[in-house]
Design a binder for these strands. Structure first.
Lengths: 159, 159
DNA sequence: ATTGAAAGTGAAAGTGATTGTCAGTATCAT
DNA sequence: ATGATACTGACAATCACTTTCACTTTCAAT
């Protein structure tokens, strides 16, 4: 989905919900759609703050919540601490592989694993509603660089 | 591993680390080993508090950290919020299935899934260090009860 | 049994991410 | 233009821990 389209979807969601399309919301949504990584509220705040110093972190949190409600953003809790937000693509469900060294996040999907999960749940007498699968390890670059030194650290995800 | 054995292991860990075996630590460890579910620091605190009102929540947190260091406890972060602690059995790695209705937690292991995870990681150029797999859904009892009513709620995990 | 250095303790304050409150401000159908 | 309604930012509050600090306990060496 193009950025313009997403922006429009967001505006539609606001109108349908009897909410208002404000300068701040437009700006925050635009900044969010302009990212292509997993981004934290704080990091997004720093970006919009660059364009308009008067926008508060609180409004960023509120707008991200609206984006979630609009089905345009997903919130993810990796490891400890802060949440990261990603675009909610209309694509299928996916899981994540996270580099413990540089923070890079790669998405993947695997039907076989999903099928096995269903099987496990059935055996346990459960009906799965949703799941969380995260693989943590070192990516190729960080493995090459594995001396543990301070070598070039490519942080791909905004943190 | 019997509770006595665990208690002894803990004491050994303390001595080896130049730490002291105090009344509080003994009591908290004993209470922890006496549980057989996933328990929060807060819940464990309430239990020891029943035996000795003067033990602080802070000491429970500190002792749980020591138990982790001793390799006798694992900390788990399910969903949002508080951490739950479980006995670190010498058994193999396991994952968790959690009932979103009553909070029941069931452990399971599945080699096939693990193998597929390794395969995915290899394809992405990653080396897995650890992973997190959590299935959320309704257990048999809560499904039967699925009218959504306030029916009998069997909370198995201490929260 | 006593002692004293090192470690431990509880209370209270601090954290860090996020959420709630509130008085003033912006939006938009009319 | 206007006014009802929603929105905003600053600040306080919350939640699950963690740190700090003045006092207390432990335990190896007497």
């Amino acid at each position: 989905m193009a950025m313009q389209k997403k922006q429009q979807n967001f505006r539609q969601h606001l109108v349908r919900s009897g909410l208002k399309a404000t300068r701040q919301r437009e700006l925050i949504a635009r900044a969010f759609f302009a990212t292509n990584t997993h981004i934290s509220a704080e990091a997004l705040y720093r970006r919009v703050s660059g364009r308009d110093r008067r926008i508060g972190l609180v409004t960023v949190y509120r707008t991200l919540k609206l984006l979630k409600e609009a089905g345009l953003a997903h919130e993810r809790q990796f490891g400890e601490g802060r949440a990261l937000f990603e675009h909610a693509s209309s694509e299928r469900h996916h899981d994540h592989m996270i580099c413990t060294h540089c923070g890079k996040i790669v998405e993947f999907e695997n039907c076989e694993i999903e099928a096995l999960q269903e099987e496990v749940a059935r055996k346990l007498g459960f009906t799965i509603q949703y799941h969380k699968l995260e693989l943590y390890g070192r990516c190729k670059e960080c493995r090459a660089d594995a001396s543990g030194g301070t070598g070039r650290i490519r942080v791909v995800g905004a943190r």
